[in-house]
Amino acid sequence: MVDIASGSAAPARIPATGGASRDAAALHRAIFIGLAALLVVAPFALYPVFLMKVMCFALFAVAFNLLLGYGGLLSFGHAAYFGMASYAAAYAAKVWGFTPELAILLGTFVGGLLGLVFGALAIRRQGIYFSMITLALAQMAFFFCLQAPFTGGEDGIQGVPRGKLFGLIDLSDDRALYVFVAIVFLGALALVYRIIHSPFGQALKAIRDNEPRAISLGYRASQYKLAVFVLSASLAGLAGATKAFVFQLATLTDVHWSMSGEVVLMTLVGGMGTIFGPLVGALVTVTMQNYLAQFGAWVTIIQGVVFVVCVLLFRQGVVGLIAKFIRKPL
């Protein structure tokens, strides 16, 4: 945790061997295809709503991991982008009658815009101070949502109509919505993969590893940090907006600081700085919440224990550990 607090996040270190990058790319492609196949068969065995919840949180964690794992920036306020986007999409769909895709686009935009403002303020400081600024700003966003009339206060925005996608496909059917969410999820995952492997992503990793050195090579580091912050907030917004349609609900839970904490947990359990770690982390966390629900308040304690054990036993997370074992980045 000290590493994270100092802002110099050290992701799973994978020893590379000759020609490794091409091997790794082939492996990643295979995992992508496997994942898509899994999403096709999964609804026959599990509740679609549960799967959609996992996908929304996985996307949220992927967005967060882009910032933490590849940008080296620990935001403690990602619930703000997730929750505000959720409110924006729910309100647009319910009150203005937006179609789902437009409402989700609006939510994504709101997340990104908020990320631009908050990010521009936060990246002026580093390490723990950066995290504290993001937390403070997110708390302000929470109290705004608590007080603002359009959010419905403690009740939230309920009964959000799922509507018709492009005005054609009725999403009130869980299966139709499932297909839509799966496409959004896979598309966003592919986009993040591309970002990580773009020239921009390379420069970002360099800045994460050694910011002064990157600056001395002529990189304007703060532009890169702000850009990744906005990308991460937009994708968190995409996740939150999509979630509003899955549950037909936007509430204060989505903007609460505990949501910011949960996404940190998912990312660390799965493995920060890995591509597939956040997916595993989200699956583990959401599964625990759903299937351990009968234990009531104990879920939080069980989660806490899992988190502590995880950090003590394998700091690189589940996927980070596997990646180290097979000596390939995942």
Binding site: P199, F200, A214, L217
Partner: peptide, 22 residues
Amino acid sequence: RIALQRRIRGSSLDFWRSESVL
């Protein structure tokens, strides 16, 4: 390559470009 990267177009913030340019 990080140092060489600024030579090519796409060395800036365009995050959508493929790493093949590298």
